[in-house]
């Protein structure tokens, strides 16, 4: 099996300098690896550090200790020690992060938001437009919204724009933080299908899902973070 991501000894504590310099230990010595086409679900009660771990894998948070090797083409990049430009390069091609929140950029149209990652990877404009339209339709976003900027959309609509953007050309490694959180049943089903299709194409998935039913349909494996809980 092809290894896509390997986490080694990840340890995280937050130091809050302005709140009596309190140190909040989150987890310690988390190690695991994920192969192509696997879907690993992070498990454990609220506060165990699921989101924190996911953000470390993406290079958004810096671990206090440990490494994250991710497959980037034929090579591996350690997202913890790589230069910022290398991390950005990996995010463009190899690793994607899907949260329930869309970071809205003023004035940018929905269709452009969905096309953007494809254009960055060198897909032609015509092809990107075609695929973006298909994906937005599949997620039941009304066509009249496609040429509008999503700042005024509802939470669920913004979330679907975000999902369309992330799944229209899924990264080889996909990190999912509650992507179905505020969706209705029909759209939730679409997301479950999209995840399955991404896996069939070889993407490795690491995700957080609170919805038990969704979790059972998506997961090939669970990683219980409770065992890594750092001593406070």
């Amino acid at each position: 099996m092809t290894t896509m991501l390997k986490a080694e000894g990840l340890t995280k504590q937050f130091v809050l300098h302005h709140q009596d310099s309190v140190t909040l230990p989150v987890f310690a010595e988390v190690s695991f690896s994920v192969d192509q086409s696997e879907a690993v679900i992070l498990h454990g009660p609220s506060g165990v550090g699921k989101s924190t771990l996911l953000r470390i894998l993406y290079g958004n948070y810096r671990p206090s200790k440990g490494h994250v090797h991710i497959r980037h083409g034929q090579d591996f990049i350690d997202i913890v020690t790589a230069t910022p430009r290398r991390v950005l390069e990996a995010r463009r091609k190899s690793i994607g992060f899907v949260s329930q929140f869309l970071r809205v950029i003023p004035r940018v149209k929905t269709i452009e938001i969905v096309k953007d990652p494809m254009l960055a990877r060198g897909v032609s404009d015509a092809e990107a437009t075609h695929r973006a339209r298909d994906m937005l339709a599949r997620l039941n976003l009304p066509e009249r919204l496609w040429t509008l900027a999503p700042s005024t959309f509802s939470g669920g609509e913004q979330q679907r724009v975000n999902i369309a953007r992330s799944f229209v050309d899924p990264s080889p490694i996909l990190l999912l933080d509650e992507p179905t959180a505020s969706l209705d049943a029909a759209n939730r089903d679409v997301v479950v299908e999209l995840i399955a299709e991404a896996r069939q194409r070889g993407s490795a998935i690491i995700g957080i899902f609170h919805d038990e039913a969704v979790r059972d349909r998506v997961a090939t494996r669970r990683l219980d973070l409770t065992t890594y809980k750092a001593a406070a």
Partner: peptide
């Protein structure tokens, strides 16, 4: 210093924490 989202979302230095909060 670092990646923009890193520095803003997981600030380590006391001054950066003050700025972002």
């Amino acid at each position: 210093e670092g990646l923009t989202d890193q520095v803003l979302d997981d600030p380590h230095h006391a001054y950066t924490q003050l700025l972002t909060s």
